[in-house]
Write a protein that binds this DNA or RNA. Structure first.
Lengths: 334, 334
DNA sequence: TTGTATGCGTTATCAA
DNA sequence: TTGATAACGCATACAA
């Protein structure tokens, strides 16, 4: 391995001078600089990033904890983060937890061990105690997810309001018996969407039937299973609001399987606007989260924290959008 | 930041002893060990991974260059890599190139700068000169993709044979006029699949019409566009072989749009077996690459190279599988 | 079983 | 404008 020492010797200068040239510092004579650059090229010298990082106590690297990289919802967020990080000369390290909390803990240690300068977590499943320990001492931003009573920097949309909005849209279409497919109520995220659902019904004087609220894994299979359960209830439902697009697609499959036509017989709406949702047939009506922007905002926020700059606000609430496609329509069975 | 020094002072031992305890080395008295561990807990000491890596000249980290993290084809491969890497105590750093070659170059530098111990590239778009430079001096494995005349360690399936197999399946179903949707012929991958297509036709004495071979981006849009072009040709085609599942799904959409029924009027087959292919309706007939196994094998191979162990073979050719679903069937229009 | 001392490759301080 | 040298935090050869 060729080091500053080798370059210095070959160029007949000190290692300090080599270092200055490498870092493109001022105060170095043109001739010297040219000579050193020539030698660097000749020897094919590459600065050892590890040594530099160790000396500077900074890696210019940020770890992004992704709950499940197989979920396309996270891709665009990742793009947004990466886009902004690159702009500031940072690398991102993608840590895929594969939905296992212990893995998350493992990656948090990378931070404690100074391998990264900051963390963006797209998950909030981690033990609260560890989270607090980390948050107090290290730069961290939580995006998409969030915890109860937490004062951690955060970037999300207003899930309550968005859920309420899309359920109100169904109500506007004449639906009065609307079911809700959702997931682990331990996640505040799902409780918020549930609350939005409830308050939309309540404000429009519609009856609330908790038997129409079904819980399962946030997956196609989960949505499929619960939609079938719903159908077996034999109640006069005409629409369903799924708290995630994957569950909504599962519901769509169950309905097709049962011989029901969407949106003629039944309306289905989701949440998130993942890539599949516009490709699947029928294309899904859903709430679009500004994923790229969430990523950008999260990095910008983290960057400020890492550099000790003041934050305009601890929590950023971004705008969502109701995207109406083919899976929903007016209730024709009133 | 608390370091070995702090721990040593607090425990009244030398830093060497602390280091021994941290690394769980033998030759340290039980009492001393317990004491040191107690102090470590009390001070909440975390070894600085950067310093350790620098000292050992090894990061226990492998970079995986992914052409496009938004393409679900790569997820399972990533899982396979991660699974095996974790088993050996390695971290993986996912570098998303976003289909930009310059980004790939950028990440290769991480290797040259000793930030990672090895590279798994799922892409082969990089400049051949850089690739060679890297391959000669550093541990690297290329998976899924490959270059002409290259003697780099490699893990793939036999694309020629797989393409031939799925086209032969179409021929068995009575199809005689089979089109081919493919992408950039600069990629050896696509040329191989094209060759498989040609040789299946040739061996069964079927006419070869190069007008039925269409090139476009390997995306849903690309498949959609080219399927429409094909339809406009007005030729008696009854089946199409797309060199990738995304293009196949685009073709499916174009056919539906044209009022054609799949598989009654038309058969469509793809390649790769991405997640969406089994969810889309009609579910896609395709070639399944053993993605998880490719990932595992690639890491195992890299691990051997990193440790100077001999390789059983330079190139591993894994088995593929023909997966028959709903998008293909017998030719009823003969 | 433990401690001392050196070096990993770089950056940065200070002096020249 | 340049050079000598001291850190950064750890692992390890060698000595005790």
């Amino acid at each position: 391995m060729v080091t500053v020492k080798d370059v210095a010797k070959a160029a007949g200068v000190s290692i300090a001078t080599v270092s200055r040239v490498v870092r493109d510092e001022a105060n170095v004579k043109k001739d010297t600089k040219d000579l050193v650059l020539k030698v660097i090229r000749e020897l094919n010298y590459q600065p050892n990033a590890l040594a530099r990082q160790m000396r500077q106590q900074s890696t210019k690297t940020v770890i992004v904890i992704v709950p499940d990289i197989g979920n396309s919802f996270f891709h665009e967020i990742l793009f947004g983060i990466q886009d902004t990080a690159t702009k500031y000369g940072y690398q991102i390290l993608i840590a895929n937890m594969n939905n296992k909390p212990d893995v998350e803990t493992y990656y948090f240690n990378a931070l404690l061990q100074k391998q990264v300068d900051g963390v963006i977590s797209l998950s909030a499943n981690i033990a609260k105690s560890l989270m607090d320990k980390v948050a107090n001492a290290y730069p961290i931003v939580v995006a998409c997810q969030y915890l109860d009573n937490s004062d951690m920097p955060n970037v999300t949309i207003d899930n309550i309001s968005a859920a309420k909005r899309i359920v109100e849209y169904l109500i506007e279409q004449g639906h009065t018996h609307i079911a809700h497919l959702t997931s682990h109520p331990t996640a505040l995220l799902y409780r918020d969407r549930f609350n939005g659902y409830i308050s939309a019904l309540a404000e429009h004087g519609l009856p609330i039937d908790l038997e129409l609220v079904c819980y399962d894994e946030p997956s196609i299979e989960g949505g499929y299973r619960q939609m079938n359960n719903l159908l077996e209830l034999g109640k006069p439902i005409s629409a369903v609001f799924a708290a995630g697009d994957t569950m909504a697609i599962g519901a769509l499959k169950a309905l097709k399987n049962a011989g029901l036509k969407v949106p003629d017989d039944f309306s289905v709406v989701g949440f998130d606007d993942i890539e599949f949702s516009s490709i699947f047939e029928p294309a899904l009506t859903t709430i679009r989260q500004p994923k790229f922007l969430i990523g950008q905002t999260a990095f910008e926020k983290l960057f400020k924290i890492m550099n000790g700059a003041p934050l305009d606000s601890l929590k950023d609430i971004l705008d969502y959008e109701l995207v109406i496609r083919e899976s929903s329509g007016v209730n024709r069975h009133k």
